[in-house]
Amino acid sequence: MKFDQISSKENPLFKELRLLQATGSKGQKARLSSGCALLEGIHLVQTWVGDPALETLFTSELGLQNPEIAEAVYAHLEMFPQTRVYELDSSLWNLLSDLINAPHIAGLLKLPKSALTTTQSIASLDGDVVVLDRIQDAGNVGAILRTAAAAGFTQIVALSGCAHLWSTKVLRAGMGAHRLLDLYEGWSNQQALSAITSPLMAATADAEQDLFNLKCELLKPVAWVMGSEGQGVSEDLLAQAKGVSIPIDPRVESLNVSTAAAICLFETVRVRRG
């Protein structure tokens, strides 16, 4: 099967891919403007094979020699023959990906409607929630999304100031968790406080309440609030939340926020199973 070729870094579509990869507000603006996010690597592409939101695939002659990549491309084409597939010149992959020896496979994913505005909110958000308060590191955000999905916490609210949930690095760190989650981002603190009906539990180092002494509180729906790497949870959120600390060796100042989230979420799972 013959696919369209892209051989120059000046190709308009290739330039668009590079923009979608950009970090910060530049990349977020490009993703919201185009309505697409870039999936990098075989695992992410495989996650969306069979989903009509995966509208375009990119590979190379070398990539199609990889049985795993070829299987993903042709399986998706069989289900959605209208999918556009482009073969990039192998030399372009080093410009497209910062991964060493990156597999020659990527995809353009049509964003869900809920992702196309960063001010989306709803009147009421019931049940378990994870609130991300100005967490800026894309790796941490993606790791928390992956942990939340594994723990069964499917509602995520990313407050204004967080890394964009659909950025390439967050998607990569999330390892496909996005497909399992309901994602809301760009909310103000007040929007979150107004919409979330479950009691807020804020993970914070100096709280008197020990995580492992919580029992009854975790049996009902909760909203875990994880604060920014440098500043922790916002004061106005803390004022409405129960502060909860994870007991650690006093010689260690704090835990990485994604590690703290994993401990809190899976302690919730453990209590409920008990």
Rank of each mutant, 00 (worst) to 15 (best):
39 L>H: 08
29 K>I: 02
30 A>S: 15
43 H>L: 10
31 R>A: 02
23 T>L: 13
41 G>S: 05
23 T>M: 10
31 R>M: 02
33 S>T: 11
36 C>M: 12
32 L>C: 09
27 G>F: 06
27 G>E: 03
41 G>I: 00
30 A>F: 00
45 V>M: 01
22 A>F: 08
21 Q>I: 10
37 A>I: 04
44 L>R: 00
39 L>Y: 07
43 H>W: 11
32 L>G: 12
33 S>Q: 14
31 R>Q: 07
45 V>D: 00
18 R>V: 14
27 G>R: 06
28 Q>R: 15
21 Q>H: 10
36 C>G: 00
29 K>Y: 04
29 K>T: 12
17 L>K: 02
16 E>K: 09
37 A>H: 02
43 H>C: 05
40 E>R: 01
18 R>T: 12
36 C>V: 03
20 L>F: 05
29 K>L: 07
32 L>M: 13
18 R>P: 01
40 E>D: 11
33 S>F: 13
20 L>W: 02
39 L>P: 09
22 A>M: 13
39 L>E: 08
18 R>I: 11
18 R>Q: 14
34 S>Q: 08
36 C>Q: 14
33 S>C: 11
19 L>W: 09
23 T>W: 09
30 A>N: 09
44 L>N: 05
17 L>T: 09
44 L>A: 01
40 E>Q: 15
34 S>V: 05
36 C>R: 15
24 G>P: 09
36 C>H: 15
25 S>F: 10
30 A>P: 12
24 G>V: 05
31 R>W: 00
19 L>M: 13
25 S>W: 11
46 Q>A: 09
21 Q>P: 03
24 G>R: 10
27 G>A: 06
24 G>K: 08
21 Q>N: 15
35 G>L: 05
20 L>M: 07
34 S>G: 04
